[in-house]
């Protein structure tokens, strides 16, 4: 293209940015930089301790190795308790999520019911499992019951939210068609709603089972049973070699859970 020497074409081109105004662009960058200064400054980060951290990390890993599996009975009890909590919680969560999910679908439920159901979902979703767990511990005492209830609440909130969104996304046409046959509400549910959302409901539930296995390892930190409780105890006693053994078991457990979930999902398809 070098041959036709036309000079009336511009030689400069500037990429139009998302924020076109240069001042606004610089302002945004300045704000971000300022935020980092403010946050880092206000956190009162102890740089001395930070620099010591590497040495302490080396120390810690030194004390962790080799992992101590000698108390395998305690370990196994914790792991199986976590798994049982996860299974039981997924089951109850799945069951309870159906009514809540139906009530939280705006195209199905009357307004007041819808608002209450959405309120339940928002509140339960907002609080971290560990906060819910500690409150259950205060009500029901230490042990796996509090942990299981925590996971039930978390599953309920997750599955019912997905369920409600799925129902809201159904095409109105298919719903109308079944309604037009003169079906009653229960029949309408069985014929119009359930067949369309069942596969996703099962899929989401299995994801939740997987997630419950992960979370069952952590609710024990506040005394709600499972392997987390054993881990917390070992950290408190500075039994770091046992801690590493527990951590390895947790990673293995999460791995198996993920694998298992993937296997069931492949069966469902």
């Amino acid at each position: 293209m070098s041959a036709p020497a036309t000079t009336d074409y511009p030689k400069i081109w500037k990429r139009p940015g998302l924020i076109t105004n240069l001042h606004v662009q610089r302002g945004v960058v300045a704000l971000v930089v300022l935020y980092f200064f403010w946050s880092i400054g206000s956190l009162d980060l102890d740089w001395h301790r930070f620099s010591q951290g590497f040495e302490r990390a080396g120390n810690l890993f030194g004390r962790m190795l080799p992992p101590d599996f000698s108390r395998w009975e305690l370990l196994l009890k914790g792991v199986s308790e976590s798994i049982q909590m996860a299974f039981a919680a997924s089951f109850f969560g799945m069951a309870l999520a159906v009514p809540v999910g139906l009530c939280a679908a705006s195209n199905l439920a009357p307004k007041p019911v819808y608002l209450v159901a959405r309120g339940i979902i928002v509140i339960t979703r907002t609080f971290h499992e560990v906060i819910i767990a500690i409150i259950f511990v205060k009500i029901f005492g230490f042990g796996p019951l509090a942990g299981m209830l925590t996971l039930v609440v978390a599953s309920l909130s997750f599955i019912s939210k997905m369920l409600a969104e799925d129902i809201e996304n159904l095409t109105p046409g298919s719903l109308e068609a079944v309604r037009a046959t003169g079906a009653s509400f229960p029949k309408f549910l069985v014929y119009a709603i359930i067949p369309q959302i069942l596969p996703r409901y099962l899929g989401v539930s299995i994801y939740r089972l997987d997630a419950n296995i992960r979370h069952s390892t952590v609710v024990g930190i506040v005394g709600a049973g499972g392997i987390g409780q054993v881990l917390q105890a070992s950290f408190n006693r500075y039994d770091y070699d046992f801690s590493l053994a527990i951590l390895i078991s947790i990673v293995a457990l999460v791995f198996i859970g993920e694998f298992f979930g993937a296997w069931i999902r492949s069966k469902l398809r």
Partner: peptide, 17 residues
């Protein structure tokens, strides 16, 4: 840096045309 030689930019404008 999306900083292209002026000749290339000019050639591009020409080709667009």
């Amino acid at each position: 840096r999306r900083n292209y030689p002026p000749d290339d930019v000019q050639a591009a404008y020409q080709l667009l045309d």
